[in-house]
């Protein structure tokens, strides 16, 4: 059995470091905020103009002028800052954000990512995803390893790209993968998931060490 969405988020949260500025995308990445290790200070950046995003508000604290990039009402933490969209993307494009977590449909062994466009379906837009993958120094992709037995960890992305050669780490329901030198390196496997299963569901070039540790999920 692979990881649940919450467990993927839990594993990604282990990539955080004290003092990090972090941008979390929509979906599984948003859940990462629930697992920030205790005693660690992390500031969440929301690209619509918040540094220091807090939790969802109580009914009394709902403010239509205070939303996150998913358009949900939020609060801010002590020491937060608001800014306009140009400044926000100066942070992102300029490489000032320490860690970016986002979802994807496909990634490939060259580190390219497809996350915004499925031919035949209405294309709603890329939002800030192309800027995030172009600008972040450190990106973790949260995604499903496969869909109905079809690998999403590919030799070459089939869908239109969001960014080229920009992804270095992927956490799926089955594995933690590092991308370097044109290959996926299997760093960890989900508890109870065999290396063989991961190999069979990975289309791209996969390098497997003699011992692959299990992820630590609590």
């Amino acid at each position: 059995m692979g990881l649940s969405r919450e467990q993927i988020a839990q594993r990604i949260a282990q990539e955080m470091k004290d003092g990090y500025y972090v941008n979390l995308g929509i979906g599984i990445p948003t859940l990462v905020a629930n697992y920030i290790p205790a005693g660690m200070q992390v500031m969440l950046q929301s690209e619509n103009g918040i540094l220091g995003m807090g939790e969802f508000p109580t009914d009394e604290l709902v403010d239509p002028d205070l939303i996150n990039a998913g358009k949900q009402t939020v609060t801010v933490v002590k020491g937060a800052a608001f800014f306009n969209s140009a400044d926000s993307f100066a942070m992102i494009r300029g490489g000032h954000v320490d860690l970016t977590v986002l979802g994807a449909f496909e990634v490939d062994q060259d580190g390219s990512i497809a996350s915004w466009m499925v031919p035949g379906k209405l294309v709603k837009g890329m939002g800030g995803a192309m800027d995030l993958v172009a600008g972040a120094r450190n990106i973790v992709v949260a995604m499903a390893h496969s869909n109905k037995g079809e690998s999403k960890i590919l030799t070459k992305c089939k869908l239109p790209l969001t960014g080229v050669s920009c992804i270095k780490k992927v956490v799926t329901d089955l594995a933690v993968l590092e991308i370097k030198d044109g290959a996926f390196y299997l760093l960890e496997r989900a508890p109870g998931v065999s290396v063989e299963e991961i190999v069979s569901l990975t289309e791209g070039k996969l390098i497997v060490a003699s011992h692959v540790p299990e992820m630590k999920i609590f």
């Binding site: 690209e47 306009n84 969209s85 140009a86 926000s88 993307f89 992102i92 494009r93 209405l122 294309v123 837009g125 890329m126 939002g127 800030g128 995803a129 192309m130 800027d131 600008g135």
Partner: peptide
């Protein structure tokens, strides 16, 4: 309207859009 072709849509990355305007 988009699917009918009544409207043309130019999708632009959010940061690029902000910078084009700035």
């Amino acid at each position: 309207q988009f699917l009918n072709g009544d409207m043309k849509v130019i999708l632009t990355p959010q940061g690029t859009l902000a910078e084009k305007i700035r």
